[in-house]
Amino acid sequence: MGVVFLLTSCEKVVELDYKGNQSRIVIEGNISNQPGPYIVKIRKSVALTQTGAYPTVDNAVVIISDNAGHADTLIAQGNGTYLTRKLQGMEGRTYTLAITAENQSYAAQSTMPERVPFDGIKVEEVIFGGETEFNIIPEYVDPAQKGNNYRFELSANDKLMNQHFVQNDEVKNGLKNTARLELSDDEDLKLKRGDVITLKMQCVDAKVALYYKTLALIGDSGPGGGITPNNPPGNISNGALGVFSAHTSETKSITIP
């Protein structure tokens, strides 16, 4: 598609009128198989045009329990941040998050899948439309059992990219992964020789995968755009934005040769 458009297309920043925004509570909760403490953050969304810090919720009661009989009441650290005290994330366990904040209750559940080892990062150099591009291929071997979901966080030179990457075994099950991460066409995010790539791989459950998959699918608006954007289907009740994810986590780095 790029070829035709490269010849003619142009970009500019425009001013738009935005509809009023209804501020909603945003919950971010992560439990991993790495040692704790684990963090839950409670903040609020703001209008798109607003700048400055996000409002936080600091007097909530936050409890995480698992299906092995453990429960942990998190300690408020201020700035909307809550830390677990003793909980240890374990593969195969289901975690329940219960929050009471501003007279409202929110609940979420997530199951930490069995870990699939992250074997390495493969960088594939390709010439695409006359330009050198680098494909990032996470190396792992998908287990024979179907239903695995993987999420990736990509950083280049310690800067986290605001992009969502999800892979699953729907088309290819039980094989070594060969699929690359679908990087955005954004010129500003282009990878270069010498960049230090850090990739975090998470094995996530189906609901968490759907949440990030929806984000990954949301395209641009307009006649040439992708699917109509929407708030992704999260796993938290009572209309809260955000997601509660219990996942395994493993990080690798490589320098683009």
């Binding site: 509809k19 971010e28 997601v243």
Partner: peptide, 22 residues
């Protein structure tokens, strides 16, 4: 079309909040 109306942080990324469809 559906433009974002708001934004919020999640996992150190900025996310967009959407209101009514189209």
């Amino acid at each position: 079309v559906t433009f974002p109306t708001g934004k919020y942080p999640l996992n150190d990324m900025v996310m967009y909040q959407y209101g009514n469809r189209n």
